[in-house]
């Protein structure tokens, strides 16, 4: 049991956790910078939205669906030239952020859109009746009312991206996933594979728990 878990390996795992967190959090952050506005646009340009626009909605919707239908592991490989152009390499944690963002942003856009759809239309109508413009409705009504749901969405997104980082380990990405593959799979150190899985589970649990608690605390509906 755990015969391969020596001091050297523990150091490696600790670094792996650091890299995984780095990839996950930076990718989530950057992906939100893209996904949040796209999600808002998808919502407001939809039929009967506050800025209904069929063309914009169709173009964005199609682009999002297209990106979302490519499996991450294929997307990772396909996007390598772009990654090399932006980061200069396709290997390592920083390089992994590019495909992670590309894959997570459309996912986030749909999550945001669905959170906004949960907002009671009556509240939007009330704001319109008071003479609120589109910008005021977005920032003072939609995002405020959807906040708890957006936080839950963010927690789900983070854990999903965390899963993707492990896949990136297959093609030279860093983090716990790379350790699991390099040691657990290629070198038959099954115990190391199990340790990384356990660590990933713990990290996912922590993010999910933090997300749920913040969401629950911020929701004033109950």
């Amino acid at each position: 049991m755990l015969s391969n878990l020596n001091g050297e390996m523990i150091k490696l795992l600790a670094a792996g956790i650091g890299e995984t967190l780095y990839m996950t959090l930076v990718s989530t952050f950057v992906a939100y910078i893209i996904g949040l506005p796209v999600g808002i646009l998808l919502y407001i340009t939809d039929e009967d939205g506050i800025k209904e626009n069929k063309v914009v909605n169709k173009v964005l919707g199609t682009a999002v669906n297209l990106l979302r239908s490519i499996p991450f592991i294929l997307f990772l490989v396909a996007i390598m030239p772009v990654t090399r152009f932006i980061v200069g390499t396709t290997i390592g944690s920083t390089a992994t952020i590019v495909p992670l963002v590309g894959s997570a942003a459309p996912y986030i856009a749909r999550m945001v859109e669905s959170s906004l759809k949960e907002v009671d239309y009556g509240v939007i109508e009330a704001a319109r009746s008071m003479g609120a413009n589109a910008k005021q409705i977005i920032f003072k009504v939609l995002l405020v009312e959807a906040k708890p749901s957006l936080i839950v969405g963010a927690a789900i997104t983070i854990t999903t991206i965390l899963g993707y980082t492990a896949m990136a380990g297959m093609v030279g990405g860093g983090g716990l996933g790379a350790i699991a593959i390099n040691y657990g799979y290629y070198r038959y150190q099954t115990d190391i594979a199990w340790v990384t899985i356990a660590l990933l589970i713990i990290v996912v649990q922590i993010f999910q728990e933090i997300g749920s608690r913040i969401a629950k605390h911020s929701d004033k509906r109950a």
């Binding site: 003072k140 405020v144 708890p148 509906r221």
Partner: peptide, 26 residues
């Protein structure tokens, strides 16, 4: 101004914040 059957208040804001809302946007 308009009032509604289902009140349509901001559920994530307090009573006073709700009342401040129209003044905030103007």
């Amino acid at each position: 101004s308009m009032i509604f059957q289902n009140f349509n208040l901001l559920s994530q804001q307090t009573a006073i914040k709700n009342v401040c809302f129209p003044m905030e946007i103007s």
